[in-house]
Simulated scan of single mutants.
Amino acid sequence: MLEAGSRPSTSAPASRAPVDRYARWAGLAVGVSAAFWLPPLNNGEGPLYAILAFGLCAVAGVLLGDALTAPRRGTVRTAGLTPRRVRHYVPPRMTLLLLGLAAALIVLLTAAAAVASPDDLGRAGRALTVACGGVTHSYTPWPGLYYGLPVLASLALSTAACGWSLRRIATRPGDEQSRRDRTLAIVAAWGLVVSSSLFGVASTVSGALMSTTCDGVAGVVGNWTVWPLGLLALITAPWCLFTIVSPRATAWKDRRAGTGRDSHR
């Protein structure tokens, strides 16, 4: 019961944080297990599928934690007339960075598919073939359509799932800070899929280009293009992973926000 002049409690149920945390960690644990078992399989294609499986399992864990967690509610709630949009809650700079990385991933896969060729066994979209001094050289693996389509499929699946979850968070009942925390976790999970996939594709492209000395200026330009992308993805992925597994950071932000509100009273 609230007394006159008291503030409504916005604290979450005691079981809220553990359920969310365990779901996130379970998703990451399954992803790590898949990443451990997949590399030896599929004739060298395992590392690609390991990266995709890890990212998708991380997304699944975050979405499961959100689905199992009741939204935080105060005793007294008011509703504004302005409709809530997803863009009001996503971290703007990080979201722009991740969108840029996703666009770079799509462009890189498109360019790689355009120059891909069959490998030595005649399997399409698996190799980069260059001619040097009348001799044809083939380098694999190469992220043509055979390797690129699974990456694009995982990106599309994670984007659809995270987009649906972000819209659900923005429109459901709850307090503003809770919406921002949940949105940050979803964006980080999607960012882990994007950054890990981009790092894998950029590394594969760079490895093939560095294996040949017959690629000329195009190969040099290609390497100087994919290296910064791979480095940026390598830096972004740990941030996304830390955001997923660090509920204490969210709790610290909640306490700081609460302190800020109290100081303005």
Rank of each mutant, 00 (worst) to 15 (best):
A67N: 08
I51N: 02
V86H: 05
N42T: 13
P83D: 01
L48S: 02
L38P: 14
A23N: 12
P92V: 04
F54K: 00
P91K: 03
P39C: 03
A67R: 15
G46C: 00
S33F: 07
L38C: 08
P92Q: 09
P13T: 10
L97Q: 01
H88S: 15
A14G: 01
V76H: 11
R87P: 00
G31W: 04
P83H: 04
G27C: 09
A23T: 06
V19D: 14
L41P: 03
Y22V: 15
P83Y: 05
R84V: 00
R72V: 15
G55A: 00
V19S: 09
W25H: 13
R24K: 15
P40K: 13
N43W: 12
R16D: 14
A34F: 09
R16F: 11
A23D: 04
G44W: 07
R84D: 09
W25Y: 12
P92H: 01
R77Y: 10
L81P: 13
L68W: 07
V62G: 11
P83K: 04
C57W: 01
R87A: 07
R72C: 12
G44N: 06
A23H: 04
D20L: 15
R16G: 10
V86P: 11
W37F: 15
F36T: 14
R24N: 14
G31T: 01
